[in-house]
Design a binder for these strands. Sequence first.
DNA 1: CACTTGAACTGAAGCGCTTTAGTTCCTCAT
DNA 2: ATGAGGAACTAAAGCGCTTCAGTTCAAGTG
Lengths: 343, 343
Amino acid sequence: MSAYDRPVKRLTISDIAARAGVSIGAVSFALNDRPGVSEATRRRILAIAAEMGWRPSAAARGLSESRAHTVGLVIARSADTLGVEPFFMKFIAGVESELALTRTALLLQVVPDHARSIEAITDWWAERRIDGLIVMDLWADDARLPVLESMGVPAVLVGRPRPGGMPAVWNDDAAAVTEAVDFLVGLGHRRIARVAGLPALEHTQVRTAAFHAAMERHGLSPTTVVDTDYTWAAGAQATRDLLAAAAPPTAITYDNDVMATAGLSVAGQLGVEVPRELSIVAGDDSQLCEMVFPTLTALSRDVQAYGVHTARTLVELLDGRSPGSFQDATARLVARRSTAAAP
Amino acid sequence: MSAYDRPVKRLTISDIAARAGVSIGAVSFALNDRPGVSEATRRRILAIAAEMGWRPSAAARGLSESRAHTVGLVIARSADTLGVEPFFMKFIAGVESELALTRTALLLQVVPDHARSIEAITDWWAERRIDGLIVMDLWADDARLPVLESMGVPAVLVGRPRPGGMPAVWNDDAAAVTEAVDFLVGLGHRRIARVAGLPALEHTQVRTAAFHAAMERHGLSPTTVVDTDYTWAAGAQATRDLLAAAAPPTAITYDNDVMATAGLSVAGQLGVEVPRELSIVAGDDSQLCEMVFPTLTALSRDVQAYGVHTARTLVELLDGRSPGSFQDATARLVARRSTAAAP
DNA sequence: CACTTGAACTGAAGCGCTTTAGTTCCTCAT
DNA sequence: ATGAGGAACTAAAGCGCTTCAGTTCAAGTG
């Protein structure tokens, strides 16, 4: 016989109504700031509710309002990749803090691929567990979007705006990449390589295109770009390959901090001195960039704020307003010790 | 006029009942594998439900069953600390995968401290959003537990079992720390220091006690232990202090991988060669430990499995079974390049 | 044959809210 | 005095399920 066998007697709206000597309707009005009760009564009811520690049942509310007061966030990545990416936790913290303001909960699902992601979303929506969705890690051709559209799920895209009416929260990846290239060219580098992330991801393509354009503008094409899967192993291998070339790059930009660290490590093993012989720029910033030696020059941005803006946009969408897409601040280059004048 | 203005007409149990030519009760029986319908009818109903893509509304179910089919996970840490700890995402991935089996959702809340954590839990429980809870980052004297107990929230503790009847999922931190000490002593080290995590956390205290005991057993007391907050900065400072002593340690164990990396970095800056002059052991393992040079010897365990076991225990608890506490596998020492014979 | 029995199924109550349609009562203009 | 109007509140109908008390009917029993 555990402590949990006897279900605790839980309060309902009737208890509050009885205690206040009014009908349950009156309590509902008071609670939701609707007309129908006098100011004095409203205050009395709210005081009683607070005193007794009553809060309306989410299920009952959800049932009559047809609103779950919950939004979903599905992350489609392997647990391994997730582990080292500081990005997600920070982003989630930002989303949470904004959702708390409107008493909206966050349902989370971590699945390995898009197929399961679609399953999860479909289930949630069919069960009316969520009112809306945050969609991350957009692919250029993303199988989830047509599904969401056909189901009519209100969703906010974390990525570039697309035709179709779903609002997006994004930042100018192209400008950030361009800044990095300009910075390196300014230091005298002419052989600059790019170690990109997953080629299927939209922002990878945007960044790669921007990289090509920036290099070309400086008269430095053709350019070298290597695709990877964001892991440390891939970053290390790409670096080995690049440095083994006949005319190896004097600077490499990586699409995240993990791979940049891998590159740094490989350079050390090969006896290539950073930054004297090789400059390195990380595409994401985190404590990791300050944890290695030399510290990494990185493209830095406020990920938590990114989460806040995303949540805010979704809340507006659910409120029936029609939020446009939101452009977040562009990442800025933070120069540390991994970059120097070209040899 | 956005695409989301017209609410999609959604299916209910009546639609399925009508289509199958039975009462809604029959559909409910079929759905929940309850007696009351023939096998043939059950299959027909389920086929129709699947074909039409109907799933029962979580709110309606929750209301009549008094069960939310959702559990909560509150993480009380600053976003900064969360960012670099690969632990949480892996753990969550494990929890998710197990919960998915019983169609239970995971509600997540990321808050900065215990006070807000209690608020969040109280709200969820009062609103009946959750059936149970996973409690992480236990303090030795944890303010949340009495609250949970008084509310009667079914909860699983991620940490050592305690009096009070809440099941716990834990692993033998003491044994792991002892193994690390034995390993270092076996290499000839006699001055071994410990850089501990947050002193308020229970497992920090367990590990510190085990460290003292192991050192004493080898006749190596008094011992040096430095408390920190798990951050890179604290790890770096602790290392600087330790190495500046008259008789600096020849080996240091750190309570997580981030601080071990910081220690490695500081040693490099001070010209202390690892592992020739200083051996380093990380208390958590992750890709990070393989990303630095030299790679870090670490106490490694399967964090995702840890999450799976935790979720499984909670599910059992909610099912009315009385799961005992579960002891997860003890972390094993993975020897890499950061440890060597004492100088 | 009249009957019990049990399997298969239906009807309706109830879960705890929101919301709409009343009802009551007071105030104020006519 | 009379009724219109509005503020304050109540009653009751849902929302979409689960579940329990019945109802029906075919098969089995003596």
